[in-house]
Simulated assay, not measured.
Amino acid sequence: MDIVGAAITATRAGEPRSARGRFTGTWGLRFHSGGGIGVHVVLQGTCWLLPPDDSPPVQLTAGDVVLVPYRRAHGLANDPRTPLDDVRPGQQTYWQDDADLPPDATPTVLLGATYHLCSVRPHPLIANLPTFIHMPSRIGADQALRDVVNLLGAELESQQPGTTAAIPALLDLLLIYIVRCWYQRADMNNGWARALRDPGITRALSAIEQHPELPWTVETLAREAGSSRATFARRFHDLIGQPPLGYLTWWRMTTASHLLRETNHPLQVIVARSGYQNEYAFSRAFKREFGTAPGTYRRTHHAVDTEP
């Protein structure tokens, strides 16, 4: 079970949205904060990232990838001194036709994507990401990430049958690879970076996230981790930031909220998948976590119109 993939799937709402742009001359874009993750890919040319934390501008070249967790306000421009134009919500493209390009122009081609996340209940693996992540296209960079970037560029260029389905799937892969790569390279003082490199803790996390419906105890989770109860409980808390059963409850409720938002499954199915014996116990736990009943939450946040 891929812990990174599970974290993204459980907190994401709806399909990723993408837009592309081709720019020449003087241009600048301002992206406002929002409830999701923003990703930019430089497919051709160069530009500058104006980071969300007021750190110095970063030059981007072809193949570079930038991730901005929870869409903090930031900018992209041909030059750090260029004034920025606001990006309108829902604007899908800034593409310039070939006829509009100067004969000797070398355009900068960008792909942007937004992943809408449930910001009320972010997975700590996502919440602990830095203000922005820059994955340069240089020797030694992760080849799988490079391959996804190349495939995205090819799909956008060719516009073959199936492109509308391929691009969201590739965007999903792109997000997973960026987060995975960052945690693989992160400082070992980061709890989740250490947890993902700890085989025992990873096995316990995978057991919880793959089978939240099972009656887990600290003892059974410790056996999954191949450790004594006391050692496992202490190490889990040190790395994850909460006790094993606290995380189990948090994950069960996160899974339940995702199923209520993104599926039409009957409540009794969601109750069973969340590890509760009856709807009454589940509803009490859900209201304690979210401050509202499951039915009210579904009516407010439901995004599915047809039976899956």
Rank of each mutant, 00 (worst) to 15 (best):
D53R: 12
T114I: 12
Q160A: 08
L101H: 10
H134L: 07
A77S: 14
I139Q: 14
V58A: 12
S137Q: 06
V120H: 04
D98F: 08
P124S: 08
L60P: 10
I133K: 00
H116A: 15
T108I: 13
P56V: 14
R146K: 06
G153E: 03
V148Q: 06
L76E: 03
D97G: 15
N150F: 02
W95Q: 11
I167D: 00
E157V: 02
S55P: 07
V87I: 13
A144S: 10
A154P: 00
V120Q: 11
G63L: 13
A62V: 09
L152Q: 06
A165N: 10
V66P: 03
P56L: 14
V149P: 13
I133L: 11
P57T: 00
S55I: 14
A144R: 12
Q59W: 01
P161I: 06
T82Y: 00
L76V: 10
P107E: 04
A127T: 00
L125K: 04
G75Q: 09
P69G: 09
A141L: 04
L101E: 08
R146C: 00
T93W: 04
V120T: 15
P83Y: 10
V148Y: 07
T61Y: 05
P89K: 08
A127H: 07
T164F: 13
G63F: 13
A166I: 03
H116S: 15
T163V: 07
Y115D: 07
T114E: 02
A73Y: 02
E155F: 05
D86F: 08
A113H: 08
A113Q: 07
L67W: 09
R72H: 14
F132G: 00
G63K: 12
I126V: 14
G112H: 09
A105Y: 07
P102Q: 09
H123G: 01
D53F: 09
T61C: 12
T93D: 00
S119T: 15
V120I: 13
D64C: 11
V68S: 03
G75H: 12
W95K: 01
I167R: 12
